[in-house]
């Protein structure tokens, strides 16, 4: 067959570089670079907490109750004489773990539900969509308080609380994306060559709805950190004596006028991390999901 000679033998577009996307996220965005640096720094602090924390975060001392900042205790001590800086360093572990774990779990659960609803439609869609709508009717914080009140505190309970609070958002985005990707000719063409449904979902639907899900994950990492802090502040998140930025602020309230430094320190840490994740999330969204960046 001579057809080979007639076909165009050159490709039209260049091979895409492997790190193209990473480059685009940072290109021309100094704020994003700073944000990424802050995030990276906090993750390092969380990992290296036992190495860099000057004191044991749980060690109490009646001799040093409610001290102000000093060379020994940069952010002072709290009502039990614990070193606030060390508590903040250990507390960053909670924030980071919840911040990264909850959106990831929520993304897995939410995407699964959303894809099932979107792809199969019918009763599955109706049930899932109604439940999601119901959950979305509550503000996240209220929903989280509701579940936390029912389950009580504790690490895994908080993970469950945050996950449940975030699932509806992911489910809704995944469902909408699945509905649109399902209409794509390449999905129909996979059906036409006889590909089985599970393969179609995992091979042709999920990779093509991943971008908005990843964007949502980065944006909600910030929310998760904020929410965990709020819950801990309200006393239904991380339970004493374990440190968390939320309960450092809560404890700091007892001695607000004696030493405001625990509140200022933890507040600043929360602000920095949440702001950084939001900035980073915006940049990721601009690159991965150019249609929704209005």
């Amino acid at each position: 067959m001579t057809a080979l000679d007639h076909g165009a033998q050159q490709v039209v577009a260049p091979e895409p570089g492997k790190f193209e996307i990473v480059g685009k996220i940072f290109a021309g965005r100094p704020a994003t670079v700073v944000a990424a640096f802050v995030i990276f720094a906090f993750i390092l602090i969380a990992i290296l907490a036992p190495v860099i924390a000057p004191y044991d975060a749980l060690a109490q001392s009646f001799l040093r109750i409610n001290h102000g900042p000093s060379w020994q205790h940069w952010l002072g001590t709290d009502q039990f004489g614990r070193d606030v800086l060390s508590r903040m360093i250990y507390g960053s572990r909670n924030s980071m773990i919840f911040g990264l774990l909850a959106p990831t779990l929520a993304a897995i659960v939410g995407t699964t539900l959303g894809v099932i609803a979107g792809y199969f439609g019918g009763i599955a869609d109706r049930v899932i969509s109604r439940v999601v709508d119901m959950l979305l009717a509550f503000p996240e914080l209220l929903l989280a308080i509701l579940i936390a009140a029912a389950l009580g505190g504790g690490f895994w309970n908080i993970v469950v609380v945050l996950t449940v609070a975030f699932v509806p958002g992911f489910a809704r985005v995944a469902r909408a994306q699945t509905l649109s990707v399902k209409q794509e000719p390449y999905v129909e063409s996979a059906i036409a060559v006889g590909v089985r449904t599970p393969t179609i979902i995992f091979r042709h639907i999920v990779p093509n709805i991943a971008a908005p899900i990843v964007v949502l994950m980065t944006l909600w990492t910030a929310s998760a950190i904020r929410l965990e802090a709020s819950l801990s502040f309200l006393g239904i998140g991380t339970q004493a004596p374990n440190p968390s930025w939320g309960n450092i602020i809560r404890d700091g309230l007892n001695n607000l006028f004696g030493s405001p430094w625990p509140i200022i320190g933890a507040g600043l840490a929360i602000t920095c991390v949440v702001l950084s994740f939001n900035l980073f999330g915006d940049a990721v969204r601009d690159v991965l999901d150019p249609e929704t960046n209005q």
Partner: peptide, 9 residues
């Protein structure tokens, strides 16, 4: 009749 190749960008 066919023209070989494709239209350049």
């Amino acid at each position: 009749h066919q023209i070989p190749g494709s239209v350049p960008l």
